[in-house]
Amino acid sequence: MTAIAGPLLSATINGVTYGATLFLVAVGLSLIFGVLRVLNVAHGSFYALGAFTAASAWLLISALGWPPLCIYPALVISALVVGVAVGPVVERGLLRWTFGIEAEAARENAQLLATYAIFLMLEDAQKLIWGGQPYYSGSALRLLGITRINGIPYTNYQLLLILVAVLVLIALRILLRGTKMGKFVLAVAEDPEVSSAMGIPVARIYTVAFTVGAILAALGGALASPTIGVNTGIGSEMIVLSFAVVAIAGLGQIEGAAVAALVIGVGHSIAVFFFPALSSVIPYATMLLVLVFKPYGLFAAAQVRRI
């Protein structure tokens, strides 16, 4: 193994792990945009809420003296709880009125501002509920043991994260193309008006898609929580990162979001090895570069297919 290849492999594995989280959040954002045409600025807050809830779940499991392995189902349950509790309320209560605005520019702007207002509210809600101090649940990371690849140790949890992201990608694909509900979602994403004329309850599909998107963001946060310090501010950082992923892929693209998340994840990790100072520029620089040459993203070839 050459001097370069070792760190490169290591960077790639770390990058794929990072990309996996990024994918989960970004694909939720993309789903919401694809179906509702709303760029959800509050999406990062769903991620943060998922992370905080999961961190609390860890504390609770420790306090109750339950077996530590309970944390894994608890991560998923946290995500579901957050998504189901917040998604429908936000979509029905706070966003639905914007769908009636006829002029496209005015509607988009109202949605950007409304979701930003929701972001602000949720940011403070986090502070009120969880206080200002960071939460660490890192021991959940080591429960599954360690795998050595070329002598470098990786937690199996990292590999599990990648597996979950792949499963979500496959599940989304199957659900969208293979179930009645999925086909309704595809139809609404493409043409809400004709969908309603075919008997599809468009408003309900909006709520479903928004909630699933919120669950995915919360799942990203819950699964990332053992690997990060859960702190206020993680939401505002994640929203711009997932914007970058979605913009690179093309708004509404699902498989594309996976590719873009991988590119950003691996690019970021490689940069950490070689130019650590510039690593955090990678996502935004990639986004700029892509948008200069492909204004609608890498995979948004035709306007017709959005999911």
Partner: peptide
């Protein structure tokens, strides 16, 4: 001190709406 963004968020929302 800790809920200034909450207040701001509500105000923005009310104005946009």
């Amino acid at each position: 001190s800790s809920s200034w963004e909450l207040l701001l968020g509500v105000i923005i929302f009310v104005i946009v709406r």
